[in-house]
Amino acid sequence: MSDATQARPVYPVSQEDMERFSALGRDGSAVTVMFHSRIAEKLGLSATDHKCLDLALRGGGPLTAGRIAELSGLSTGAVTGVIDRLERAGFVRRVRDPHDRRKVLVEVTPVNEERFAPLFKGVSEMVERVLSHYSPEQREVIHAYLSEVNESMREEVTRVGELD
């Protein structure tokens, strides 16, 4: 956890709140997985391949396979298969690191916005519509909550991956 989250006050959480938020989290997770599975299907990818492509798109430039493994929580062997499939489909290419020719980087090929935009248009409009019902202060609380949940889930992905 970040220092900012550790410095905040801690309040008791009721069993009822745990049940409500757990149910909401599970529902959100399920609908998100289903949505991204549908997007992946439209792109001719598996859901895992699609989300690894998304991580690579948001990575700020070419990434190593090891970095994609860290971000995704997948093993490096599984990521190699993902990269192979994304490369065959034309979404990424392997390139030499200009600073260390021994390293291979994964670079996302130019994204065809016309192909992706219609798939995400409805979600973008929905998020804007939902957010419009909350004040800027409420949005900050929602943002802080979701950011902390996402950061903690990344840690859980790693933890679960390390279990025997």
Rank of each mutant, 00 (worst) to 15 (best):
T64Y: 02
T32C: 07
C52R: 06
G81P: 05
G122S: 11
V160I: 12
E155A: 12
I83L: 11
H99R: 12
R101F: 09
R102S: 12
P9L: 05
H36V: 06
A65T: 13
L53Y: 10
E70C: 00
H99D: 12
L71G: 07
V108G: 01
V130C: 07
F120C: 08
V108H: 01
V31F: 10
N150C: 03
T32E: 13
S29H: 11
V157G: 00
V149G: 02
V106W: 02
S72A: 13
R67F: 01
R88Q: 14
P12R: 07
D100A: 02
G59Q: 03
L163P: 00
E114L: 08
G122T: 09
G77D: 11
E125T: 15
I68Q: 04
M34K: 12
A89P: 01
K51L: 15
P9A: 07
G60L: 08
V160M: 01
R139N: 06
L55A: 04
R115F: 00
R8S: 08
L43W: 06
V10N: 09
V95W: 06
N112T: 05
Y11N: 09
A7H: 05
G161K: 04
R115P: 00
C52E: 02
T158S: 02
R38Y: 07
A23P: 00
E107I: 00
G25D: 01
M126V: 12
K51Y: 09
I39Q: 12
L71A: 03
V111H: 03
E113G: 01
P98M: 08
R67A: 13
D3L: 10
D97L: 08
G122R: 10
G77V: 08
F116V: 13
L71C: 00
A89R: 11
V10T: 13
G90P: 06
E162M: 11
E137C: 02
S72T: 09
L131T: 10
P110D: 06
D164N: 01
S152W: 01
R88L: 13
D84H: 14
G28E: 04
E155N: 05
A23F: 03
D17G: 01
I83P: 03
L86N: 08
R88S: 13
F21S: 05
F91N: 02
E113M: 05
A89G: 06
R139L: 14
T158P: 00
V157F: 12
R26C: 05
M18N: 05
M126W: 14
E87D: 08
D97R: 07
D17Y: 08
R38F: 09
F21C: 02
S37K: 06
G122M: 06
Q15A: 11
E107K: 09
